[in-house]
Design a protein around this nucleic acid. Structure first.
Lengths: 246, 246
DNA sequence: CGCACTCTTGACCGAGATCAACATTCGTGG
DNA sequence: CCACGAATGTTGATCTCGGTCAAGAGTGCG
């Protein structure tokens, strides 16, 4: 599948098919889901902590992030979400959202009512399992991120981030030759990595100086994948991608 | 329910009933699950990163922890698990474990085959949802922990930990008067909080000096719950406990 | 073309790490 | 029941990674 025609598929189908090929019936059931598609401009909250959503959404295009605010007004970004992700799928079973989700770039977003998802899950056991699985992978990413913030220094943290991002983007067909869009500012990176903006800047320069990455005008190119993984102490296992995509 | 007779209930029933009252049929279905109960002594790994378990387990008694190791041999503890927890429930849908789970104290552990859990889920939709929900709450705890490590300083981190631990323990009926067992060494705490042992020691003394907690011989007492929550920037919302338990 | 956002650089500071003893507790075997 | 060694907890001195502050340089958009 080329990156071009991939954009025309149903984002949910595209995501689930990275796990296993869907049956015709399953595909039909997903296509029958009523989806409320809309475009949300950059730097808007899609849902907020404390909301009690009656629907979840899938990102069809763009980059969003899940975040929490500290009592002292500091922001912690928990994850960046790209095409195919369902960042608040959890609200299907947890009434009150414990995170906010905001756009980084303009996003094409498809809202799906919980009742429709629930019905889909009841009738298509494999799809239910795949969605459950999806939430489990987010949990695995969070675990890895705790490890990253808790026990790696700044340079490794940044390298790790780059590895994770590009691997996830590749799984959705957004990467050509170790190169992809990375429309994330250094401030956003700092809120994700638990560092100051200034230090993120220095660490990125270090990664460039080491010849590991090229990062300019919102475009990331990995120059030395092997060494970047080493520096970032990265092993894609926790993302649970099918072998072909790794 | 007193803490004494609570110990005699099926740990899974006890856990699920913190969410909603089970029907007779559901209760019967759970009691019919073949469980392989055994005691595992302290400081043993129950499962290891890379394992492909064919069963999950529920902790009937004791404290365990989920952890990952860095490339440089540093340990990051991701969560402490207490009575009623199913720390590797994720393995039901993710083949390969991305974490290890080890005992802190001796643990009574009940292993349940995946196939049996799967069958239970197919037949008891509410139980399936409750188990899914359980994994979602773990994810919420991970998110909170990222925030804690990424954007709070040491004192707040420690205070937050104490808050979370005692709230979770209370939900399982293990707390009397803001007081419970905390059989966790400062080294283990340091690996959880992303701090050095020495600094954990100093921070704990600070919490004692502030009159917020009492912590000696593996026993934690919260002396000033309101201020401890303030210092720890703690709000139990993310634990998604029923109102009665909060 | 001007203002706001983002990135970059330098100087200084401080929370927490590291190193090194020492104290205390606890489990174990004699 | 005591003795001893290992694990755990405590304290002080010093160092360092990363934070904070401040100012400038690009960059892009209205």
């Amino acid at each position: 599948m080329s990156a071009a025609n991939v954009r025309n598929t149903h984002p949910l189908i595209r995501k689930l098919e990275t796990v296993f090929p869907l049956s015709d019936e399953e595909r039909k059931a997903i296509l029958a889901l009523p989806i409320d598609q809309r475009v949300i401009e950059a730097h808007q909250d899609i849902v907020r902590e404390g909301d009690r959503p009656s629907r979840s959404f899938v990102i069809a295009d763009g980059v969003a992030c899940a975040f929490r605010m500290t009592g002292e007004g500091k922001r912690q970004i928990l994850a960046f979400h790209i095409t195919g992700d369902m960042p608040d799928l959890q609200s299907l079973h947890l009434q009150t959202l414990d995170i906010s989700i905001g756009t980084i770039t303009a996003c094409k977003v498809g809202f799906i009512q919980h009742e429709d998802l629930q019905r889909l899950c009841e009738r298509q056991a494999r799809v239910a399992a795949a969605l459950w699985r999806e939430t489990l992978i987010y949990a695995a990413m969070f675990r890895e991120w705790i490890t990253n913030i808790g026990r790696r220094q700044a340079l490794g943290r940044a390298a790790h981030f780059m590895c994770e991002y590009i691997v996830r983007a590749r799984a959705m067909g957004l990467v050509e030759d170790y190169s992809c869009e990375l429309p994330i500012t250094q401030e956003e990176l700092s809120d994700a990595m638990g560092l100051s903006i200034v230090h993120v800047n220095r660490v990125l320069q270090e990664l460039r100086k080491l010849g590991l990455i090229n990062l300019e005008s919102r475009h990331l190119t990995v120059l030395d994948w092997t060494r970047l993984q080493e520096v970032g102490d990265f092993d894609a296992g926790y993302l649970h991608l099918p072998k072909t995509a790794t």
